[in-house]
Structure formats: C-alpha cells, structure tokens
Amino acid sequence: MRINSVVCIKQVPDTTQVRIDPDSGSLIRQGIPSVINPYDLYALEAALKVRDSHGGTITALSMGPPQADEALRKVLGYGIDRAVLLSDRAFAGADTLATTYTLSAAIRKIAGELIAAGGAGVDMVFCGKQSIDGDTGQVGPGLARRLDLSQVTYVCSLLEVAAETRTVRAWRQREDGRELLEARLPVAVTITEACNPIRYAALPDLLRAAKAPVEVWSAADLEVEPDRLGLKGSPTRVSKVFAPPARERGETLSGPDRPPNEIAAALFDKLAERGLTIGGSRG
C-alpha cells in the first residue's frame, strides 16, 4: 500500500542573527537570511524514507510570505511530488491556533485531491519538533487534533510503517528516557534531530525541481472562515518584545595583594548575603 505524506515546512530567520533594536525596542529582521527550519529537514528525510519503502507521494506545505517559496523550491530538490505555499495577507500574524487552522484546511484539500486522483488521502503528516523562531512545538499536535490524526511527538526514531495493518511504530524522546509507541494511521508525527539528517539530493531531482512549480494558495483557495485566519483568528497577542537583559559584569573580589583565603572568605560572605549559606540547617 502506498503512503501519502504531507511535510510541513517553515521558513525561519537565522535566529542567531535576530536582535532587538535597542532604540526602537522592535525586532530587527531586515537583512537576516532565511533558512528552512532545521527540524523540518529531518521531518522531510523521515517522509522520504517512508516513500522509499512504500511508494506514494510527498507534498511539502508551508504557510508564509511569498518569499517562503524559496524554502519550498529547495525541498522540491529532494525529489518530492508537490509543493504548496499558503500565502495571503489574511494569514499573517497567525499564532499556533490560527496556523493549524489554516494548515489543516490545506491538508484537507490536498487529501481531497489525492482521493479524486484515485488515491487514499493523506496518511501521514510530518512536522519538525519545533521551529527555531516561534519555538512552541504546538503546530504538530494542533494539526493532529484538527485532522483527527494519531499524535506522536518528539520522535527520535521512526521505526516502521506497516501498511497492511495501517500502523506505525516510533520511538519518542522524553526527558527521562524513550518510549516505543504504536499508532494507527493516519498519524501526525513531529521529528527531532535524533532522526536521520536529510540525504544528499540527486542531480536529476534537482533538475526536475528547477522547473517544478511551487503552487500558491490563498485564503480563497481554502474552505476557511475568514475570522479564524491570521491575527484575527489568533487568541494570543504579543504585547511586548524586548531584549533579554544582558548579565552585568559583577564584582571583582581579588586584589593586588589579597591572599586567596581572604578572597574565599569574601566570596562566601557575599553568597551568604544573597541567602546562599553553607551548612546551616533547613527551616
């Protein structure tokens, strides 16, 4: 049985370069290069693996400004079947709730088209474990709920997809260990960097990608209620952004002729002033 997948791709700024403008207090994003959210490439590789062994199709889906087409063009180079960009001013300013609303509408449409073409709809939705900008990890689970998919997050190894029984097994990373989970298809998985890194794309795929279209869908192309899109459809509001206060340089305890034992005593006095005492009894 063939497995049809959708891989969610987010274009993000190279966050190491994002800063708060100390004068205006606003985010400086201009001139900062965009990259594909790194976890999404792990997700893409996981989807490619599934297609390698089961056949089927992979559609890359991204919501973002028109320039996000660059990210999709790049993932087309890995030999996927289709790339869809959701781009419309109405989508702008979405929090995760509005994002999953929009993405799920698009996934439904993709599934409908696959069925119309004689296929079985979408079996697997792949996301990265989180984005490096918004960094919430909320989109994958949100899609699972909206689309009635089994939810398996923080996958560190996607073991097998049993097409006959329509189940998938995956190891999920937790703080205290790993758990092996079994879920029924259709499923939404979020993929961590413990999975395989993206493969080296083959030249024929890159050549095909150079001429493959990135389809752009606007709100009018989706079955959506306008009030649930973008900023309007977002319950959360960013009320303020600011730079994390830098740690300030503290006190120097050493002096030209200060002996080490005095320095040590001074340190633990200072610590005691801050409530950090040595050896006292609790309570």
Partner: peptide, 12 residues
C-alpha cells in the same frame, strides 16, 4: 523566542 535572543510578553 528566536533562540533566546528575544523575550516576548504574550497575553490571551
């Protein structure tokens, strides 16, 4: 957010 380069205060 943004890898710790930015702090945001969010309300619902």
């Amino acid at each position: 957010a943004f890898g710790g380069n930015v702090m945001a205060t969010i309300i619902t």
